[in-house]
Simulated scan of single mutants.
Amino acid sequence: MPLDQTPPLNSLGFAKAPADTRVVVAMSGGVDSSVVAAMLAEEGYDVVGVTLQLYDHGAALAKKGACCAGIDIHDARRVAEDMGFPHYVLDYENVFKDAVIDEFADSYLGGATPVPCIRCNERVKFKDLLETAKDLDADCMATGHYIQRKMGPNGPELHAAADASRDQSYFLFSTTPEQLSYLRFPLGHLPSKDDTRALAAKYGLGVALKPDSQDICFVPNGDYASVIRKLRPEAADPGNIVDMDGNVLARHDGVINYTIGQRRGLGIGGLVDPLYVVKLDPERKEVVVGPKAMLATRTVPVKEINWLGDEPLTSRKEWPIAVRVRSTRPPQDAILRPLSETTGEVELVTPEEGVSPGQACVFYDPDSSRIFGGGWIHKG
């Protein structure tokens, strides 16, 4: 190659050979991150696999087959051995408990509906683990998340995955521009999860048919209440189920057993129209119920905004965007009105039901797949 000619970029965007490019792969032991590691190893990159032990997999909080439990550490190690790259297990139990589990419990006690997976990405995987990758002299860190990183005129941009059914942008909105410059998401462009499993079979990975893990790794069978009882026993104090006027309709066995929008299991019979949980008041130990119309929300206060737009958030009084207020719902048209660099108010064009404090409000470009960041819904 002539001295004045720049080497072509490799698949990770670096102007050097894959063998000279070190990449730390965050390996959960599942099929997605295993395929990323195997793919990059086959392409000749200097791959280093890292798995985080996030909690004591012998304790009651953990469940068999959960992300980063014992079997998953074993599976990640086996992939590394088969593909011939080093693999390390890092003990992050204390960090995970302090940064994710304790806040999860406290948020529930406060009547919110937390999303611990977002905090885990924000405070553990994309913060502490990312710093570890830099300490290992890695050029970048790759994960198995279904989201895309695309280069725009002003640098890296975050985009939704090609497969909308697998898109994980709701859980990654708090990724900062600095983190995005260092991260890579090699699976985000794949048309479907079937393509990922086909790659796993191609590489001969034992996890090719391994079922997907559930979102919240430390919650057995989705039973939030049992986890909160172990962490905060006082959360199971009984109280009253009341209507909007404060009239007592029934008793309950703990506010933690209820979520905004819940209809079933209220123990209120004999009514013509169904009632829904419209508010949780932990201080008064009350579950407030009302008609479905009370769930409709048009104005959503948002804090801790992470903004990924090209212009400063406060450079405009209004931003026409699309927002997702729950991971299971598609983006809806809205207007974002900034109040500061990190706070704002979102007006939904069509009212949404079940908008709850503690959930994320993620911002999307209404005309493309780009994510403009997001923030946390609060009580206002």
Rank of each mutant, 00 (worst) to 15 (best):
D4W: 15
F14Q: 07
A17D: 15
A26K: 04
V31L: 14
A37P: 08
A38M: 07
G44K: 03
G44Q: 08
Q53L: 08
Y55N: 02
D56F: 01
G58I: 00
A59C: 11
K63L: 01
A66L: 01
C67Y: 04
C68F: 02
G70E: 05
D91W: 01
E93H: 00
V95M: 04
E103V: 05
S107F: 02
A112D: 13
V115Y: 00
E122V: 01
K125W: 06
L130S: 12
T132P: 00
K134R: 15
D137A: 06
D139Q: 02
A142C: 04
A142W: 00
H145L: 01
E157Y: 00
A161W: 00
Y170R: 03
F173H: 12
P177Q: 00
P177W: 03
Q179L: 00
L180F: 05
L180H: 02
L180S: 01
S181W: 04
Y182A: 05
F185I: 04
L190Q: 08
K193S: 04
K193P: 04
D195R: 13
A201C: 11
A201F: 05
L205I: 14
V207C: 14
D212F: 07
S213W: 02
N221T: 06
A225S: 15
A225Y: 12
V227S: 06
V227H: 02
R232G: 05
P238N: 08
G239A: 07
D243N: 15
M244F: 07
G246I: 13
N247D: 14
G254Q: 12
R264V: 11
L280D: 14
L280I: 14
E286Q: 15
A293L: 09
L295C: 14
V302S: 10
W307Q: 05
G309W: 11
G309V: 07
E311W: 09
R316I: 05
P331D: 08
D333V: 01
A334R: 05
I335H: 10
T342H: 07
L348T: 09
E352S: 12
Q359R: 14
A360T: 07
C361H: 06
V362S: 04
G373T: 11
W376K: 13
